[in-house]
């Protein structure tokens, strides 16, 4: 958390009052938040976040959708469920964060290239082969982010190859992917096509 706080004038800013409702299954769960801070205290990533989980849930309840979607908070979430099982108000917080990631990816929020590239690359490989292929995933991921950062991982990659931890497999280009039909049907059911 950075020490310089920013003053937001709530009467002047555009607020999305339905935002918090869109993050949980029933809709009103986040309104139960009492700002106790247990989520932040239990979060292993809080120290690396620009906005802590407690602060983010307050912002969500205030309807500050745009500000929330531009925080790093969700991308530093490891989906460990600490906050969700600890929240005294029983709010499904980890699942709300998955919704935030969905929105940020769909709205193509800029600035978190590594994270969005990670999800895209993984999803593409899964759709194509029905299973993860670590080599191809890593190649796709580093190609779409920063090839230089890949060099940091190259030594380890070689060691893993030697131990048979990653399998070198030829990518299959073209043709129908193993889970294309299922992915397409889900998109259709969700009205995304």
């Amino acid at each position: 958390m950075s020490s310089d706080s920013e003053v937001i004038n709530l009467t002047e800013i555009r607020r999305d009052t339905a935002f918090a409702e869109s993050l949980t299954p029933v809709g009103h769960e986040l309104k139960r938040c009492i700002q106790c801070g247990t989520c932040t205290a239990s979060c292993p990533s809080a120290a690396f976040m620009d906005v802590t989980p407690r602060q983010m849930w307050r912002m969500a309840n205030l309807g500050l959708a745009d500000q929330v979607l531009h925080t790093k908070t969700m991308w530093l979430c490891t989906v460990c469920y600490e906050c969700q099982v600890s929240c005294p108000r029983g709010i499904p917080l980890t699942e709300a964060i998955a919704r935030l990631k969905q929105m940020a990816i769909q709205e193509r929020i800029k600035g978190f290239k590594e994270s969005t590239a990670f999800y895209r690359a993984f999803s593409d490989v899964m759709r194509r082969y029905g299973k993860m292929r670590e080599m191809e995933f890593m190649v796709r991921y580093f190609m779409s982010t920063n090839l230089l950062s890949a060099t940091g991982f190259a030594g380890m990659g070689l060691k893993m190859l030697q131990r048979g931890k990653v399998k070198p497999e030829m990518p299959q280009l073209g043709g129908e992917g193993r889970l294309d039909k299922l992915f397409d049907r889900v998109a259709e059911l969700e009205g995304r096509r």
């Binding site: 989906v79 699942e95 998955a98 990631k101 969905q102 990816i105 999800y119 993984f122 999803s123 899964m126 029905g130 299973k131 993860m132 193993r178 889970l179 889900v186 998109a187 969700e190 995304r192």
Partner: peptide, 12 residues
């Protein structure tokens, strides 16, 4: 096939 890992729920 893959369970979706941490990625399925983020796609939808």
């Amino acid at each position: 096939t893959c369970c979706g890992a941490s990625v399925g729920a983020v796609m939808s």
